[in-house]
Design a protein around this nucleic acid. Structure first.
Length: 270
DNA sequence: CGCACCCCCTGCCGGC
DNA sequence: TGCCGGCAGGGGGTGC
């Protein structure tokens, strides 16, 4: 579930609570995540204090005193939740960090596609490979024009390529293409100037609106302190195959691109 | 480079 | 009711 708006929602929900707190206990209940949790993980965290909460694409960066960072990726089914200590661990609670005030920070991930690792700012291979964050000034219509130039790939595949732009996943790629009036299968290099401008604007407006509404709680997404999001009520096309387009009543179509379901209105999008 | 496939893993839902 | 296939917000790898 978690794409940029969900991770940003989690970041904002943790920001008032996490910085300043010290880790007084580390329990790793399951090391087999997408990358196995490394030996020494517990010792490196114990006694450290959180200093900040940042985000890069779909990665959450929990900053620690001493300059290291606890890097978190939630994969498809991951959650990270701050809760009161004392109710015991649930199934799929893989990492439990006890904090110095009777709260605990829990990494929960049924499918185990997520990851948690400690790294210094200089050595994140994962982060160096990421493209710019679409909500920063690094991203622009000009940049979109540059990365689409000459690319025959469907525009939706490009939007979801984290090396091109970081943070967009399957829900928001479909939603921003609807907003821009562009079909997901269009070859990236075929987009004209006005379409590129519309898409750049739609990327920003869809992501900002989704952040404003606390992300999409399809299935059971919750932020860092257990609150649901509401952007799912605004989905125009995602998971709406066969239902009428909200703009023109034409049935929404589903196609598969790069192995992922993709949704569009055949009349509003060209 | 692009793409069509695989894989990783668990849970849920609909059809039979 | 129970089983089975398909599908799910992620990323990575292979071979063509």
């Amino acid at each position: 579930m978690p794409e940029l708006p969900e991770i940003e929602t989690i970041r904002r929900s943790l920001l008032p609570h996490l910085p300043g707190r010290r880790i007084v206990g580390v329990e790793v209940r399951e090391r087999r995540l997408r990358q196995p949790i490394e030996a020494g993980f517990e010792a490196r965290l114990l006694g450290r204090r959180f200093t900040g909460v940042e985000r890069r694409g779909k990665y959450l960066l929990l900053e620690l005193d001493g300059g290291e960072i606890l890097l978190v990726h939630l994969g498809m089914s991951g959650r990270i939740v701050l809760r009161e200590t004392g109710n015991g661990a649930a199934p799929h609670d893989h990492v439990v960090l006890a904090l110095d005030d009777r709260d605990e920070l829990v990494f929960h991930d049924p499918r185990r596609f997520g990851l948690m690792r400690i790294a210094g700012p200089e050595n994140f291979a994962e982060l160096r490979a990421l493209g710019p964050d679409p909500l920063t000034e690094e991203w622009s219509a000009q940049r979109l024009r540059d990365v689409t130039r000459g690319r025959r790939a469907p525009i939706k595949n490009l939007l979801m390529d984290q090396r091109v732009v970081a943070g967009i996943g399957n829900i928001y790629a479909s939603e921003m293409l609807f907003e821009a009036g562009i079909r997901p299968r269009r070859a990236a290099r075929s987009l004209r100037g006005p379409e590129l401008a519309a898409l750049a604007a739609a990327m920003r407006s869809v992501l900002e609106e989704a952040v404003r509404l606390g992300g999409s709680s399809i299935s059971d997404f919750r932020d860092g302190i257990g609150r649901a999001g509401h952007f799912q009520t605004r989905h125009a096309v995602y998971d709406r195959a066969g239902q009428p387009c909200l703009a023109c009543r034409t049935p929404i179509r589903r196609v598969v691109l790069g192995g992922r379901s993709s949704y569009f209105c055949p009349r509003c999008q060209r």
